[in-house]
């Protein structure tokens, strides 16, 4: 083979790489944070997703790469992703993405505004700006359904019964409560706060919400727990998937919660 042909070939390959990584949008996406999957689906890039976590069933027939905290590196590498959507830097350090030679997008919204912002960024990154705009518009429209309340119901939101953990101000739930017209009484700047039961009682919330889901499997009804004997709040049970995941669902959760607040205020 002569050297000129070789040179042409190398050039061609390099061009291919260039187009693959820049000119064209990402083609092989692995989602390591399940809350981001519905967003990708809405953006119409389901066919580009090649890997998800074990518990994520948003897409059909997509390979699982393990848990979100400990994905299997070999599986991940074998899928040759060009973009990884991860939860946080703590769950998926940048060094790993460097080693895998892929780009990484951190999807870790703390508020509803944050979610919309991330949708916009993802749309841009995946060259789906138009669909992103549409989705944002739709979600904002959803918030229009929220009815004004006569007062501001106070809330404590239980993430987990054992140990007793409640949502702090860095949790998406804080934002959901605020948009629904209520106030999260736990102001600690954390996502989850390990709290003394007596503190919850003395906060004296109007509404005590407890979620049921993988983080809180079969919790005891709060009113049956000895330490909540004197809890006077209205107790409400919600689905963890609907409330605690910072995705599209959060907007529906706001509307649902608003409706609950309406009844409580009455």
């Amino acid at each position: 083979m002569n050297s000129r042909l070789k040179g042409v070939l190398i050039f061609a390959v390099m061009m291919l790489f260039f187009f693959a990584s820049n000119a064209q949008a990402y083609q092989r996406i692995v989602v390591l944070y399940a809350a981001a999957s519905p967003v990708l689906k809405e953006l119409g890039v389901s066919d580009r997703v090649v890997g998800v976590t074990r518990t994520d069933h948003t897409f059909k027939g997509v390979r699982s790469v393990g848990s979100h905290l400990r994905p299997n590196m070999e599986l991940l590498k074998a899928l040759k992703p060009d973009l990884i959507v991860a939860g946080s830097k703590r769950a998926f350090p940048e060094e790993i993405s460097k080693r895998l030679r892929t780009d990484v997008f951190y999807y870790d919204p703390r508020s509803l505004e944050d979610i919309l912002f991330k949708i916009k960024a993802l749309g841009k990154l995946l060259k789906r700006q138009k669909r992103a705009e549409e989705l944002i518009k739709r979600l904002k429209g959803k918030l229009q359904e929220v009815k004004p309340l006569k007062g501001k119901p106070t809330v404590v939101y239980e993430i987990m019964e054992r140990p007793l953990k409640v949502a702090g101000s860095k949790s998406i739930i804080n934002s959901i409560i605020a948009h629904a017209g209520g106030e999260n009484l736990v102001k600690v700047k954390k996502k989850h706060v390990l709290i003394s039961p007596e503190r919850v009682i003395s906060l004296n919330p109007d509404v005590y919400i407890y979620q049921v889901g993988p983080m809180n499997k079969k919790p005891t009804t709060p009113s049956e727990r000895p330490y909540y004997k004197s809890l006077r709040a209205k107790v409400i049970k919600v689905d963890e998937y609907e409330f605690a995941r910072p995705g599209i669902n959060a907007f529906q959760a706001v509307v649902d919660l608003n409706r609950i607040f309406m009844e409580v205020i009455k």
Partner: peptide, 9 residues
Amino acid sequence: FLSDDAVSS
């Protein structure tokens, strides 16, 4: 390892 969600519990 089997149950990421219940880990903190």
